[in-house]
């Protein structure tokens, strides 16, 4: 990939453009229950949710499920293939891959959660400001254009070169790299709603901007944000894994999935399970988020 990040970037842009909810006023609770109903009937979304549920349970309960401690070296069992003793085999230090995957999932899921939360918080704020206050728009969008002028992965690598490798720094880099996509989408949604008559009417009544934003604009742009966050959740995990794979993110012995693939690469000829299984785990989780995102999109924006 030109960096999974940039694939990601393109990924969301190519989905049919998300429209802000068409309802002219703040969506009512019944709107959301409609959405929920549609979502639960959506097989794609449910398949995604199921995958994510299984992974989440596995990772949360890792201390109970994991058959071995993750950092216990056992040189006698080096690079044992998948089998009864070690479900998914062992690595070059004789550590159990299955156990490491469970614990590593905690890191990957948490990485996704943190980056998505931070990036969306910053991105939505900036996007709303850019969309609502035209004065600031040009500055914000200019900065976003500059960030977008570099392929996201290259930008992330450059940021890590400054900050130094490591999981936290990788997360910071990812956040910076994905913020522009939030800003763009949120700004576009805000713009479309801003021009609506009822907003003008509300403004004419002299209601404060803060109130208009909180009560009328934010609820209406929620749908595209939710979908974007879902897809970006998987995307951030993918990006963090790619950085770890390049040796810039989580460092061994941390069982982060991308880092495990990185380590396993050197042993591909002798112990394929060291890299193939962690990669499979990344793929499944990202798939889960993509399926859920697809389903959400349909549920939020029925045609």
């Amino acid at each position: 990939m030109s960096g999974n990040l940039s694939q990601l970037e393109v990924g969301h842009e190519t989905h049919p453009p998300l429209r802000a909810a068409e309802s002219p006023v703040t969506p009512s609770p019944s709107y959301w229950s409609q959405v929920a109903k549609r979502l639960f009937r959506n097989k794609t979304a449910m398949a995604g949710a199921l995958i994510l549920l299984i992974f989440t349970i596995g990772c949360v309960c890792a201390p109970i499920i994991a058959p071995y401690p993750i950092d216990q070296m056992n040189f006698k069992d080096r690079m044992m293939g998948p089998g009864a003793k070690h479900l998914l085999g062992t690595d070059d230090f004789g550590r159990d891959i299955f156990s490491r995957l469970l614990y590593g999932g905690r890191i990957s899921l948490l990485t996704g959660l943190i980056t998505v939360t931070v990036a969306s918080a910053i991105g939505v704020t900036l996007g709303v400001i850019a969309g609502y206050y035209r004065r600031l728009e040009i500055y914000i969008m200019q900065v976003m254009d500059i960030l977008l002028a570099l392929p996201a992965l290259l930008l992330a690598i450059a940021i890590i070169a400054v900050l130094g490798p490591g999981l936290t720094n990788a997360m910071i880099a990812i956040v910076i790299a994905v913020i522009p996509s939030y800003v763009r989408i949120v700004r576009a949604s805000v713009l479309s709603i801003r021009e609506k008559e009822y907003i003008e009417a509300v403004r004419a009544l002299g209601i404060k901007d803060r109130v208009i934003l909180a009560k009328h604009i934010l609820p209406n742009i929620l749908s595209p944000i939710i979908v974007l966050m879902t897809v970006q959740f998987g995307g951030s995990i993918l990006a963090a894994a790619a950085l770890s794979f390049l040796g810039l993110g989580a460092q061994p012995p941390i069982p982060e999935w991308g880092a495990m693939v990185y380590v396993g690469k050197a042993f591909l000829g002798q112990a394929w399970w060291m890299s193939i299984f962690p990669g499979l785990a990344i793929m499944l989780v990202v798939l889960g988020f993509n399926l859920l995102g697809d389903g959400l999109r349909d549920a939020l924006d029925p045609k």
Binding site: N4, Q7, A241, V261, M283, L287
Partner: peptide, 12 residues
């Protein structure tokens, strides 16, 4: 699947 799989993993 193609979209979700990490490039480095497909490569390996």
């Amino acid at each position: 699947i193609g979209i979700s799989a990490p490039g480095f993993w497909i490569a390996l």
